[in-house]
Design a protein around this nucleic acid. Structure first.
Lengths: 326, 326
DNA sequence: CTGAAAGCGCTTACAG
DNA sequence: CTGAAAGCGCTTACAG
């Protein structure tokens, strides 16, 4: 075409304005580029400039609507800044998380947004030491210094439990995952403290579910509740998946929800609309969680080296929704 | 370290076995590579070998669990072949789809798996002409020659409508999206033919919902049904999102589902478990759809040029589930 | 059997 | 004001 690749690059990246390339040539280059559907090779570009304009997102379960929605918002926000997102999935396996970090690293992502898995501490520590921009979202490790975007799990759980107490419940159970992850521990603590305040805490009311065996564990827990000596009149379900199966089991046992047993859930489910009763739930600000994660990450990528010591723990509040309209 | 980058490359890619590099040196290279956490730069590698080992996946709505699950299976299968998946989202916008294709193209993906949007024909045609490996999944364009992985929508819809007839329904409505997309047209056709066979088709029974205005459209449609002269006793909901809102509206109107009006849905929802009635639904083989898409794509990538003319229309059957246990 | 060199497609510092 | 050249980090064909 008669011009060097360098000139083309100059024109297409908009740097021709600095009096570099003549107007007529610029125009011609832009025209032919469009007509031949030319798109620069992003790989070569990234290799040269040392940035890939890509964010690596690692979630624990992409088929879970909560993480699906989170991914959606993360992508939308990243796009605003001209970043592409590569989503990877771990299925709650820390080994898989380690593998995914390596794959993303070799693809030279500019930063990571991660929903870490249980026992994933060592992989995260390693990543922190490699000094790459990183934001943990939804979950975090209290003894690793990272940027985190989470909700106030303690508060949310405390409020949920209080509301059951306020509604007259005497014997309130907690359904949670058996997990060392901090968000679970805090949900348990919020529940515990609310009950302990009024001397109503009892170890017997705690049900720890195995993620790998969720349906059976919940079924047997509900069975146990039904046959307990103390009449259970309240349950707090601490995740959306636990809620759905939990409610199903209660219905299976013919229990009248909100009459015999009052419940509060974490996250809303479409299913709630099908019931002729209102189910209170903790609403997580998922859009804000996604957007904030991206903003924090881009900030790190952009100002990298300026003030590396400034880590942010962004704790968003989750609201207890007791009466839903629509 | 005393050895050239070339030698390192040879060793790490396992090509040292061909009598190229000595055992001791190989060992030492592998050791130091591990100890310093060395990971090859995938960008540079891809640039050199002309393949990125990456698949671009474009879905219409990642927050919809159906596409979330589909993405999950696509990723799992791709991983088996050593491919990474970049997921992009279009929100049912064809403009966005065009943009996403360009972004993925510039990132040099080796092939595309796409759930296309309405009016996205031109972008897909362009992609086909560029001769890049491509598989359309869930939806396709009958006048564009591509590899497709879909379900037998006509059959599924015909069977669903037949089952309502068999259960004694006289006046059966169809709830579908107002869309030019072939899968919708076929679902409509299956419904139409089943009814026409027994002279029960009536234009009045057709409800076309706007995706952008889904809640209001369904609400007004249900309202209309309730006040129709002919007593409606059956409804076929042709997507999961339509089903969920549709059922909610029926309940709002105090209609006893499966007594006053029998329904059949497309796809299962968690919500079904909450109802004290069984809701029949068309079960799409989502895992198989995902895996097959990847297999077909990898096949194209691998045998590219050999037999380009062989296009595959992979039509999987969907099963009508009338009685669910579990 | 091994090392040096070329080249993938870009961007940018530099020489003319 | 413009063109040629270097270099990002790999892989592989080639010379020694």
């Amino acid at each position: 075409m008669g011009v060097s690749t360098a000139t083309v690059s100059l024109v297409l990246s908009g740097k021709a304005a600095e009096g570099r390339v003549g107007k007529e040539i610029s125009e011609k280059i832009r025209e032919t580029a469009k007509s031949m559907n030319y798109l620069p090779n992003g790989l070569a570009r990234s290799l040269r400039i040392g940035r890939s304009q890509t964010i690596g997102l690692i979630v624990a379960d992409i088929s879970n609507p909560f993480f699906g929605t989170l991914s959606l918002y993360i992508q939308e926000e990243a796009e605003k800044f001209g970043y592409t997102v590569i989503i990877a999935n771990t299925n709650e396996s820390s080994t898989k998380m380690g593998e995914m970090i390596d794959i993303l690293k070799s693809r030279q992502v500019d930063g990571y947004i991660i929903v870490p898995t249980e026992d994933g501490d060592s992989y995260i520590t390693q990543l922190v030491e490699s000094n790459k921009p990183l934001v943990l979202v939804d979950r975090y490790f209290p003894n690793i210094q990272t940027n985190n975007v989470i909700i106030d799990n303690y508060r949310a759980s405390y409020d949920a439990t209080r509301s059951l107490l306020n509604n007259g419940c005497k014997h309130i159970c907690l359904f949670m995952y058996k997990s060392k992850l901090q968000h679970m521990i805090e949900r348990k603590k919020g529940y515990h403290d609310a009950l302990a305040e009024v001397n109503r805490f009892d170890e017997e009311f705690l049900f720890e579910i195995n993620y790998a065996n969720i349906a059976e564990d919940i079924a047997s827990s509900v069975k146990k509740i039904v046959s307990m000596k103390k009449t259970i009149d309240g349950i707090f379900f601490t995740t959306n998946s636990i809620s759905i199966i939990g409610i199903k089991e209660l219905l299976n046992h013919g229990i009248e929800i909100q009459k015999q047993i009052q419940i509060v859930c974490f996250d809303k489910s479409d299913a709630f609309d099908f019931m002729n009763i209102t189910i209170p739930y903790v609403r997580q600000p998922v859009a804000k969680m996604g957007r904030t994660s991206v903003d924090l990450l881009i900030d790190q990528i952009t100002n990298h080296g300026d003030n590396e010591a400034d880590l942010i723990m962004c704790k968003l509040s989750a609201k207890l929704i007791e009466y839903q309209d629509n």
